[in-house]
């Protein structure tokens, strides 16, 4: 089975800080693989362990470290789509991926539900729509038996199970099994694994095809709240009364 994992490199979400003078993130934040994407990769590796085949990780835009990590975790090869016009917006990214995926014709495309940076969650569905593949999102569990996936999804009303046969696009949440850590052996092996670099031109995409649909403005900070009430060193009974008075004053006790 040919399994593709779409992986994005993002600023480390635990290190993201805003610089109000720049109107942007502070410079130099370490870049890491998007967390949900690593859960997708773990699922892909387990699927390969079950049915055999190949796991290919693909990324649009700068992603050297993230792709190396994926190879060290056990992916067989990596593809980096980069150069002028890439990654662009979600539409551009999806167009580039689709052009490449049409060559590879994978059976399963795994991706994270959304990224921790822009977080539109658009790329997976856009790839599915353009390749005319079924989409199953918010995946928290799966089994593959007799050529069919049974997928468990976490949605508003509970857990929904869907059946779908490959080819399919699956979007992973972090309730799936934890991504494995790269072993020393894995890191050594990764150095010998192929990483292919492709530009839009290599994929036969014109500048026009890669025109983004949206423009992003700078970043801003949500308005901070005023400091609140702190009740400390007060006997529990009185503390509870003060809390009830506060809740009542805000109309929160129904």
């Amino acid at each position: 089975m040919k399994i593709v994992v779409l992986l994005k490199e993002v600023p480390d979400p635990n290190a993201v800080r805003y610089d109000p003078r720049l109107g942007d993130l502070v410079p130099g934040i370490q870049r890491v693989a998007n967390e949900y994407d690593l859960y997708a990769l773990e699922a892909a590796l387990r699927l390969r362990e079950q049915v055999g085949g190949e796991v290919i990780v693909a990324s649009v835009g700068t992603a050297r470290d993230a792709l190396n990590r994926a190879l060290a975790m056990g992916a067989d090869r990596a593809v980096n789509l980069e150069g002028d016009g890439l990654p662009g917006d979600a539409w551009t990214t999806a167009r580039a991926l689709v052009a490449w995926l049409q060559r590879e014709q994978p059976d399963v495309i795994w991706c994270g539900q959304e990224t921790s940076d822009s977080g539109t969650g658009n790329v997976g569905p856009a790839v599915a729509a353009q390749l005319d593949l079924p989409l199953v999102s918010n995946v928290v569990g799966w089994e593959f038996r007799d050529g069919v996936f049974e997928i468990e999804r976490e949605i508003e009303d509970g857990h929904q199970f869907q059946e779908v046969a490959p080819p399919v696009v699956l979007c992973a949440l972090s309730a799936l099994p934890q991504p494995r850590l790269p072993t020393l052996r894995g890191i050594m092996d990764a150095r010998r694994k192929p990483v292919e670099h492709l530009t839009a031109a290599d994929l036969g995409l014109s500048d026009e095809a890669l025109q983004p649909l949206v423009q992003w403005e700078g970043l801003s900070q949500p308005v901070a709240k005023a400091a609140g009430v702190v009740v400390q060193d007060v006997p529990p009974d009185e503390a509870v009364e003060r809390l009830l008075t506060f809740l009542e004053s805000r109309g929160l006790l129904g």
Partner: peptide, 10 residues
């Protein structure tokens, strides 16, 4: 964006 830490206009 950035997991609701920041906002942007599109």
């Amino acid at each position: 964006v950035y997991q609701s830490k920041l906002l942007t206009t599109v």
